[in-house]
């Protein structure tokens, strides 16, 4: 599975290279109705880069297919885990949690302009604290509210930045 992942990434890079080359020729080049004296047309640089990328990505894919995947990052993560979290199921649980957190962050980003900064942030913080293991009800409610209001104060009143208002509030 792990090797499949690394091969997929390498393959996607090859696909990207092909896409860049095609897009340069098909979409960009024709729009240059003329080549202004001395200035090259706008599709050359991306085309050259696309070709270089194709060569490199192909080599990379070849290597990914032939050898074991580079798992240094995960090994480092596993090494830093304490004993009781190091079992395969423990690791899997953490990975799932990390993706759940990412999904929360994504939801937060998307909803910020609808719910407004305050509501979206309070929800995000409380949900995240809970997801990452906190059961301290004070932090989950007052803590996240306090942090939200502090950030809002610092950014809008001190720094004069504008934060999303939201449709509701």
């Amino acid at each position: 599975m792990r090797k499949v992942e690394s091969v997929v990434v390498a393959a996607l890079l090859v696909a990207l290279a092909v896409f860049v080359i095609v897009e340069s020729r098909v979409s960009i080049a024709p729009k240059t109705a003329y080549t202004v004296y001395g200035e090259k047309d706008a599709s050359e640089f991306p085309l050259i880069l696309g070709i270089i990328l194709l060569i490199m990505a192909a080599l990379n894919l070849f290597h990914a297919l032939r050898s074991a995947p580079d798992t240094r990052e995960e090994d480092a993560i596993r090494a830093s885990l304490p004993e009781h979290e190091r079992s395969p199921s423990g690791i899997r649980a953490l990975v799932i949690r990390s993706w759940a957190f990412f999904a929360l962050a994504g939801l937060f980003a998307v909803s910020m302009e609808y719910l407004g900064f305050v509501i979206a942030t309070v929800l995000f913080l409380s949900a995240s604290f809970f997801l990452l293991g906190s059961r301290n009800w004070l932090m989950l409610t007052a803590g996240s509210l306090g942090i939200t209001l502090t950030v809002q104060f610092v950014f809008t009143d001190v720094l004069n930045l504008i934060l999303p208002r939201g449709v509701i509030i």
């Binding site: 957190f101 998307v110 910020m112 995240s128 990452l132 906190s134 950030v151 930045l161 934060l163 999303p164």
Partner: peptide, 28 residues
């Protein structure tokens, strides 16, 4: 504790990204 630190940092990043040009697309 990391369970508090990580969401707060994420919050700061989202605010930071939004603040570039007050554009939610930067966050996206």
């Amino acid at each position: 504790k990391k369970q508090y630190l990580i969401p707060v940092i994420m919050l700061l990043c989202v605010v930071g990204a939004y603040g570039i040009e007050t554009n939610i697309t930067d966050v996206g």
